[in-house]
């Protein structure tokens, strides 16, 4: 929905529903009903519920997305070690099968709930909601939701998280943002993982990956890091502390934090000359 007035009308679709628009007429013998609803309305509704749950607990929820094998779980293990208990962490793990990743996190002394999606290629807000029933948020500052390894489907589903972090490991192509624009456009932070391998790879240029991200009009910061060597971890931890502080400031002001690009296709838009004129209708 539009954040200004609660409608779902954007400059791109306004012409469809204005008087005289092609959807405003009644069809022969049938009632034509104009609706403007996101196709994932049910998911989005559940996602808002999840976000409110996180907000009540003053928790920041971070959605980690990437290809399989780009090092999401290794990053979380290294993050838990590097934080040394400075922040309360909990993890929701999404995989098609096994509890392997949740067990790796639990071995670090951090609570983890595993969602086994079966054959589903992504997490949705309902699965995360069920997982949250099994998670005590008392004493938790950040919940990481490790999405199913997949650069396509997870980008379309709001889970109720606050920020998207997308990993691109340097063993993949540096043109991945151009190949998977929906995923990388949604990134609030792009991590170039396994950076310790850059010295033995001659075909991955971090600058090319960043250029491909900018070509998606994405201003998100880019951090190269290695969970194994620890290089770049300081910048990642500093980002986490910054976004947590910003989120808490939003909460104090009675607001929440949302990913810059929302998966429900809502973007900031003006109704007429100024937002001030677009009073709620």
């Amino acid at each position: 929905m539009c954040e200004t007035c609660g409608c779902n009308i954007t400059p791109g679709n306004r012409h469809l529903v204005e008087p005289g628009g092609k959807h405003a007429h009644t069809h022969d013998g049938h009632a034509a009903v104009a609706v403007l609803q996101n196709l994932l309305h049910e998911n989005d509704h559940q996602a808002e519920h999840n976000r409110a749950h996180f907000d009540r607990a003053r928790v920041l929820a971070v959605n980690l997305m990437s290809s399989p094998g780009s090092g999401k779980t290794a990053l979380l293990e290294a993050t838990i070690d590097a934080l040394g208990g400075a922040l309360g962490i909990a993890v929701v793990e999404g995989d098609l099968e096994t509890e392997n990743d949740a067990n790796r996190i639990r071995a670090k002394g951090v609570p983890a709930v595993q969602i086994s999606t079966g054959s589903a290629c992504h997490l949705d807000a309902h699965m995360v909601h069920d997982a949250l029933h099994a998670m005590d948020l008392v004493g938790i500052d950040i919940v990481f939701i490790e999405n199913v390894g997949n650069l396509v489907c997870p980008a379309s589903f709001d889970l109720g998280h606050h920020l998207n972090v997308t990993l691109l490991s340097v063993t993949e192509g540096d043109d991945k943002p151009a190949k998977y624009p929906v995923m990388f456009r949604a990134a609030d932070l792009m991590l170039l993982s396994k950076s310790d391998l850059l010295s033995v790879l001659d075909d991955f240029r971090p600058q090319s990956a960043e250029t491909a991200l900018r070509n998606l009009a994405n201003e998100a910061p880019v951090i190269a890091l290695s969970a194994r060597s620890g290089a770049g971890m300081d910048a990642w931890l500093a980002w986490l502390h910054d976004v947590l502080a910003a989120h808490r400031a939003h909460l104090r002001g009675g607001e929440t934090t949302q990913p810059t690009v929302r998966s429900d296709g809502v973007h900031a838009h003006r109704h007429g000359a100024s937002a001030a004129e677009a009073a709620p209708q």
Partner: peptide
């Protein structure tokens, strides 16, 4: 879809006007 830079001046500081919608716009009953 994978090159959201300005077609006029080439700058990447752009905002999306349309292209990310997934909308049910109407039904007939």
């Amino acid at each position: 879809p994978n090159r959201l830079i300005c077609g006029a001046c080439g700058d990447w500081h752009t905002e999306l006007v349309s292209g990310d919608e997934m909308l049910m716009t109407g039904i007939e009953l």
